[in-house]
Design a protein around this nucleic acid. Structure first.
Length: 574
RNA sequence: CGGGGCGUGGCGCAGUCCGGAUAGCGCGCGUGCUUUGGGAGCACGAGGUCCCGGGUUCAAAUCCCGGCGCCCCGACCA
């Protein structure tokens, strides 16, 4: 395909369309065409091997679930409209699986009764449907997708922690075998719940997540949850609170300017609604609110900015809001505030502010938490060096779930003391199609894909030029011999010009290309060229199979996850 | 969910503002001939509910109303 829709904006999307690897059926819904299907199958095989290496057992779970199961865990209500719901013929509530914690916990509740049954890990590679508000970027973000999801079950937190480390290693190996070096970052637990979570990111500008990385100490986090060190201002004796006129000064900069203090000595008030409740967020004036962290602090799935009308009804004066004497709202205070003395805050009276406001003496928080937004350049929370901001695609995500599901769904076992305990859980996901898109995002040039050998749809692309009988015969013999040697061959015997065939070969991006033509035969055999090199070498017909088998093995060896090439860096961006 | 845009042979687009003639261009497709090492040439040809429904009008791809679909930015999210 030469013309590609202008709407395809990311490189992987464009090339997937041009090479006819995917075909869109609807928003975020794609068919996988033969080349993509073969590549996906190789990715799945790698993933499955790595899961088996960490003692996983492959299973298959349903895509359609009864709602009752999800009512037990509470997620029938807590998950929003990204979960597709419908009724079966008898009117029962049903859903399309967005993930499988409920189903797998139900299995464990049935089969696991003793500590002797633990630990255990099961996984599947299977379709999920998440009705995203917006799909984008071809296979990078879709609504229907194939995911490898794994679930582990443990008798203790120590056991969970040890296994989780093994799984993180297995994930790193998996991505390396696909040619990609993942950056492991701290992440939001999101709708899964649980205590800890890591994302495996491909660092690329095409990514839709923002990451903050410390090059000095290796701290790395999704901006959703990233922390930053907030230096407290020098201590001062608390001064008495005083009301001052500040007409027209409704912004932090305006107030700081008016009072002649830095913005670090002001209080910023921001308002949200969580559920039905008004939330009064108090943070130092120079900092921004991370809504993700705020939602986590509030343990609320849905928060939104409050409207002026809602503020008015609560007796709050926008621009001059004060945390002092607030009664109709939950007060959330960022941890930057208690350390800062004698701040300038609103007086809750239009045109007036208060000076000498001190946390603890003048007002108190209902919740105190880290809710500050970390940005590029902010100091690293562990070592203080400036954080670097970059973008990434989330290829995988792991969660320490703890007992969030086993307790709600009654998955218990008897420990060695005969005591009944909830099973301790973790879950681990890899988006198969997204991994393919990530690989293409990383391995492409202007002409097309440069597939890593491990996930290429075929090993060798045999291009025959012209209609000559000797050419056809030589290509045919080579094809048969290669397949007999275990090499997967894509053979181009179309009646197209050489230019078309070469361009298509570059587009598809199989790592090795063999040209059979009258010219090559006259020169003694066939021509071998790597997709990523500009030179070709002549091979005699007799030696071709052996050479190709060797070369392919070397390409595969380059993708060995134990190779030292990987050790030097996290996040090799383009 | 807020903002913006698009919907015309298989694909990519023009035409729409300002209603009117046979709806046009490139690619692709078919046939024939010539070509054959980096997206070939000539000739002939096939292929259209102009997204759907309603309205205005002598007349609608074009104007109006409603709907559907898709894309982009943001919000959100693995």
């Amino acid at each position: 395909m030469r013309d590609v829709p202008a709407r395809a904006t990311t490189p992987s999307h464009r090339v997937l369309l041009r090479a006819a690897m995917i075909h869109q059926l609807g928003a975020g819904i794609y068919s996988y065409m033969p080349l993509a299907w073969r590549s996906l199958a190789k990715i799945e095989a790698i993933v499955a091997e790595e899961m088996d290496r960490v003692d996983g057992q492959r299973i298959g779970m349903p895509v359609v679930h009864p709602a009752d199961l999800w009512r037990k865990s509470g997620r029938w209500d807590s998950i929003g409209r990204e979960m597709a719901r419908f009724h079966d013929r008898d009117g029962h509530d049903m859903l399309l699986a967005v993930t499988h914690e409920e189903v797998v916990t139900d299995l464990v509740a049935y089969y696991v009764t003793s500590y002797r049954d633990l630990p255990r890990m099961v996984y599947q590679i299977q379709t999920k449907f998440r009705d995203e508000p917006r799909s984008r970027g071809g296979l990078i973000r879709v609504r229907e997708f194939v995911m490898k999801d794994a679930y582990s079950f443990h008798p203790s937190y120590e056991d969970l922690d040890g296994y989780y480390e093994r799984m993180v290693e297995a994930y790193v190996r998996t991505f390396r075998r696909c040619g990609l070096e993942p950056l492991v970052v701290e992440a939001d637990v999101g709708m899964m719940g649980g205590s800890a979570s890591h994302e495996f990111m491909l660092v690329t500008d095409a990514g839709e997540d923002t990451l903050l990385i410390c090059d000095a100490c290796g701290y790395a986090a999704n901006s959703d949850v990233a922390s930053t060190t907030v230096d407290p201002p020098p201590p001062e004796e608390p001064a008495p609170t005083q009301e001052v006129a500040t007409p027209g000064r409704t912004t932090i900069e305006g107030v700081a300017d008016d009072r002649g203090v830095p913005t670090t000595r002001t209080l910023k008030a921001v308002f949200y609604v969580a559920g039905e409740e008004l939330v009064f967020v108090v943070i130092r004036g120079d900092l921004g609110v991370n809504e993700q962290k705020l939602a986590i602090a509030l343990q609320s799935g849905e928060i939104r900015p409050a409207s002026d009308q809602e503020l008015g009804e609560a007796g709050i004066v926008p621009g001059y809001a004060s945390p002092i004497g607030v009664e109709n709202a939950k007060i959330v205070v960022d941890r930057s505030v208690p350390a800062a003395p004698n701040l300038v805050a609103g007086a809750n009276r239009a045109g007036f502010h208060l000076t000498g406001v001190n946390y603890g003496r003048d007002f108190r928080a209902d919740i105190e938490a880290d809710i500050a937004l970390a940005r590029g350049g902010d100091p690293c929370p562990t070592c203080g060096a400036p954080l670097r901001e970059t973008r990434g695609i989330e290829m995988g995500h792991t969660f320490k779930l703890g007992t969030r599901y086993s307790e709600t769904m009654d998955a218990t076992f008897l420990d060695s003391e005969g005591e009944q305990q909830p099973v301790i859980m973790a879950s681990y996901g890899i988006g198969i199609g997204r991994l393919l898109a990530s690989a293409i995002e990383h391995f492409h040039d202007d002409d097309g894909i440069l597939f890593p050998a491990s996930i290429s749809p075929y090993d060798v692309h045999v291009v025959e030029l012209g209609e000559a009988e000797q050419v056809r015969e030589a290509a045919s013999q080579l094809h048969v011999a290669l397949e007999a040697a275990g090499v997967e061959v894509l053979r181009d015997d179309r009646n197209e010009s050489a230019g078309v065939k070469f361009k298509d070969a570059d587009l598809i991006g199989i790592p090795l290309r063999v040209t059979v033509s009258p010219r090559s035969l006259k020169n003694g055999g066939v021509e071998l060229k790597g997709r990523s090199s500009s030179e070709s070498t002549m091979l005699s017909l007799d030696s071709a199979v052996g050479e190709i088998v060797d070369l392919r093995r070397r390409l595969m060896d380059d993708l060995d996850p134990e190779r030292p090439q990987w050790s030097h860096t996290a996040g090799n961006s383009e």
